[in-house]
């Protein structure tokens, strides 16, 4: 089992022999000196100083980076896309989403959430809610400065969660267009097939 013999012995990986006692340490000193001197004029991407002065400068966010979820509305915050179906509430691994369907005066459920809370202190940014939502209404945000003095402030009510579609376009341009295109196609298909039973909920191919 011991494989010491079975592989070809590569001389190349024999550790270099040391000319005299202090040589390895001197090479180490040379490396740190070189880094010290070149840190003054080397450009950030080939080994220079790449620290970003955080509050003043900020690293550009990657498009796909996911932080905390938010709800999208098309025109006005009163008409969010979310229909309070509760699929995301069921699929959330850490159970941090709480949805309440709105009812009109005589108890008939409306297709609108009365209350939609996400507990940011529990959420682990896994992005499952975005994947399972059939109505493309919940997406992962880039905004990460959400520190609060009290855990209650992290329980975000619906008003704080709702953000406009234009904001969605600003942070994730590619995904936003793909989803808008899908919604437009589904709408035309539905208009074209109005006499027939409305098409199943639009499949949004994730790009």
């Amino acid at each position: 089992m011991s494989g010491a013999g079975c592989g070809k012995e590569y001389g190349k990986f024999v550790k270099k022999s040391v000319p005299f006692f202090g040589w390895g340490v001197l090479c180490g000193l040379w490396v740190t000196l070189k880094n010290f001197i070149t840190s003054y004029f080397r450009k950030p991407d080939e080994g220079g100083i790449f620290t970003v002065q955080y509050p003043e400068e900020c690293l550009p966010d990657f498009e796909a980076s996911r932080n905390f979820p938010f709800l999208v509305y098309d025109e006005t915050p009163e008409k969010p896309r979310c229909v309070a179906c509760g699929i995301c509430e069921r699929e959330c691994p850490v159970k941090c989403i709480h949805v309440l369907m709105a009812k009109d005066e005589n108890g008939k459920p409306l297709r609108r959430p009365a209350a939609f809370d996400i507990d940011y202190s529990l959420c682990m940014n896994c992005g499952n809610c975005e994947e399972v939502c059939p109505f493309n209404s919940i997406f992962m945000d880039h905004e990460h400065k959400i520190a609060a003095y009290d855990r209650k402030d992290l329980m975000r009510p619906m008003q704080k969660l709702l953000k406009s579609n234009s904001y969605f376009h600003s942070i994730r341009p590619r995904d936003a267009e793909a989803i808008d295109r899908a919604i437009k196609e589904a709408a035309e298909k539905k208009k074209a097939a109005v006499p027939a039973k409305p098409a199943p909920s639009p499949e949004a191919p994730k790009s």
């Binding site: 089992m1 006692f21 390895g24 340490v25 090479c27 490396v31 740190t32 080994g47």
Partner: peptide
């Protein structure tokens, strides 16, 4: 390029060899 620089800094470093060679030997 980074790995070579890292190795020159450390692999032949006498103190690293003194500290790490023959300590915590785990026989097969």
């Amino acid at each position: 390029k980074f790995l070579d620089e890292f190795e020159t800094l450390l692999t032949n470093n006498e103190i690293l060899c003194m500290r790490c060679q023959n300590t915590g030997i785990l026989s097969p």
